[in-house]
């Protein structure tokens, strides 16, 4: 019985992983050159920033909240980094901690508004989204290109694994973030509190858990993750621009949902989110390999996948409720 129960908790993740393997296999059978380690590594290279953002979002969604400001936060971080490096000639070693601090502070402020003024996360982070995009344009309307040597070096460094296959420094950052997130979620008090808060805020309060602190910290974490994603995105694009990462918040939410995190809160795994991101990446890669399909099919495919997974969640929840009532 116990084994069976454990299995069912992992069910949404298993579906995601299986789907990823099926898609990868289908691509490998259909297209020449698809089945290679480098294609897989490219998924990580091209989606490192999405992965970092999605990790932060996973925590927010597990508490039952949502953060719509992540895409704008990425754009703002690229813009801030670019202007500080290019126009004010700050050292990258000062710029990066500074932008991370700004992102965390941004998240912290939104968390405070949500917690202490009982505003809906949806509307507060919506305002945050407007604000961050607007601030980008206050810095500059044009795109700012970065020609700082250090940024260029980091951006072009290839870390070779197993012969000719390589990853970028961004991927290493993303993997470190994922490892840290798994540790935080499953082996720290904060992680337990996050799950408890998502399960039931009322019960967590009655149990004496630090609900207020946890909630504010979750949004701070998401702000930190999105600004770190912004730093990685700066490496990727080598420029700052107010129109970078438009619509990223939806990609991020989709990745988290496809990764098996329930939008009602309380259930979800960082590992699932990795596969959610990879599935989005593989859809893009498949469409690229296919050649004739246009880029907008990505949006339609992600929409359909989102629908299927939400449906799956629904079935999952209603079964759980039924079995809970029976027991």
């Amino acid at each position: 019985m116990n084994v069976f129960k454990l299995d069912r908790r992992y069910f949404p993740i298993l579906v995601t992983v299986a789907l990823f393997i099926v898609m990868f296999a289908a691509g490998s059978i259909e297209y020449n050159g698809f089945f290679s380690l480098q294609v897989f590594l490219n998924l990580l290279i091209d989606n490192a920033f999405l992965l970092i953002t999605a990790v932060g979002m996973t925590f927010v969604i597990i508490t039952g909240g949502i953060d719509l400001s992540v895409g704008s936060m990425i754009a703002f971080t690229t813009m801030l980094s670019a202007t500080l490096v290019q126009n004010h000639h700050w050292s990258p070693w000062v710029v990066i901690p500074f932008v991370l601090l700004v992102g965390s502070f941004f998240g912290w402020s939104m968390g405070c508004l949500i917690q202490y003024f009982k505003l809906q996360p949806f509307i507060v982070t919506l305002a945050g989204m407007f604000l961050a995009r607007g601030l980008c344009y206050l810095i500059s309307i044009e795109s700012i290109t970065i020609d700082n040597e250090w940024y260029k070096t980091v951006s072009q460094t290839k870390v070779y694994l197993f012969g000719k296959n390589y990853i970028s420094i961004s991927v290493i950052i993303a993997l470190v973030v994922v490892a840290a997130a798994i540790y935080i979620a499953h082996f720290t008090k904060f992680g337990r509190n996050v799950y408890a808060l998502g399960g039931s805020e009322q019960s967590s309060l009655l149990m004496g858990l630090p609900v207020a602190r946890t909630k504010v910290l979750v949004y701070t974490l998401s702000g930190f993750c999105s600004s770190l994603a912004g730093v990685v995105f700066t490496f990727y694009m080598l420029s700052g621009y107010g129109l970078h990462a438009v619509g990223m918040e939806l990609d991020t939410i989709a990745a988290v949902v496809i990764g098996g995190t329930l939008l009602t809160g309380g259930t979800g795994y960082v590992v699932g989110t990795i596969f959610g991101v990879l599935i989005q990446g593989i859809i893009q890669t498949l469409i690229m390999f296919q050649g004739t399909l246009s880029s907008w099919w990505t949006k339609i495919a992600i929409g359909m996948l989102l629908f299927l997974f939400i449906l799956l969640q629904k079935v999952f929840i209603s079964r759980k409720k039924k079995s809970g009532a029976a027991a």
Binding site: L250, I253, A254, W296, W297, T298, K299, I300, I302, G303, M304, L306, F307, I310
Partner: peptide, 10 residues
């Protein structure tokens, strides 16, 4: 959200 993402594609 589903239609918001997919609708632009359509």
């Amino acid at each position: 959200l589903i239609l918001m993402v997919a609708g632009r594609g359509v």
